[in-house]
Structures are given as C-alpha cells and as structure tokens.
C-alpha cells in the first residue's frame, strides 16, 4: 500500500488548523461571549485546542506513513533497527 492515502488523510486532518484561523469572517463577531470574552477572542483560543487535537492523530498517521515511505525508498521500516522488516 502506498503512503499517499496516509498523507492525504494527514492533510485533511491538518487542514482545519490552517484554514479556520485564516478565515477571519467566520469568527469576526462579538457574540456569543464566553466568560466575558467576545466570540472573536475565545474562538481563536478554541482554535489552538483544535490544532492540538488534530495534530495528535496526524502524528500517529505520520509514523505509519514514514514507515511506508522508508520501505519505498529502500530503508528499513524503523530507523536503527535493521532486523525489523515486518512494516509495523
């Protein structure tokens, strides 16, 4: 199996962390407020948490994708471990 599907999935996962912060009209509002913060501010703080939440699964996927890429380029699946060739 190619790593392309993994990287596509990683791209889909990470996309909100790039697109949403740049999409200013989406959050350029006063209401609803939260703990006194206008929406504009607390939404951007929320986006930080969203970015972390999508990066964690992307990290696990990237480890699998890296293994597939390594095999494709003639390396062992795991660095520094020439005995392991089972791709896991």
């Amino acid at each position: 199996m190619s790593s392309r599907r993994h990287w596509t999935l990683i791209g889909v996962l990470l996309a909100p962390a790039v697109v949403l912060p740049l999409w200013v009209p989406l959050y350029d509002h006063e209401d609803p407020t939260f703990l006194g913060f206008p929406f504009f501010y607390w939404f951007q703080f929320l986006l930080i948490l969203v970015a972390v939440a999508v990066t964690v699964p992307a990290f696990w996927l990237s480890r699998q994708a890296d293994r597939l890429d390594r095999v494709r380029h003639g390396l062992t699946p795991d660095a520094g471990d020439p005995t392991r060739t089972d791709g896991r």
């Binding site: 740049l22 986006l47 930080i48 890296d66």
Partner: peptide, 20 residues
C-alpha cells in the same frame, strides 16, 4: 496585532509537514 495568535496556530501544521 492579535494576528500573532492565528499566526502561531497556522505555523505548526507547516512545521509538521516540511521540517522533518
């Protein structure tokens, strides 16, 4: 000036992909 917040959100997916 508050752009610093979205800026420091957007930068990490880029790091994740390019820098390894």
């Amino acid at each position: 000036g508050f752009f610093a917040v979205p800026y420091t959100i957007v930068v990490y997916p880029l790091i994740f992909l390019f820098l390894p």
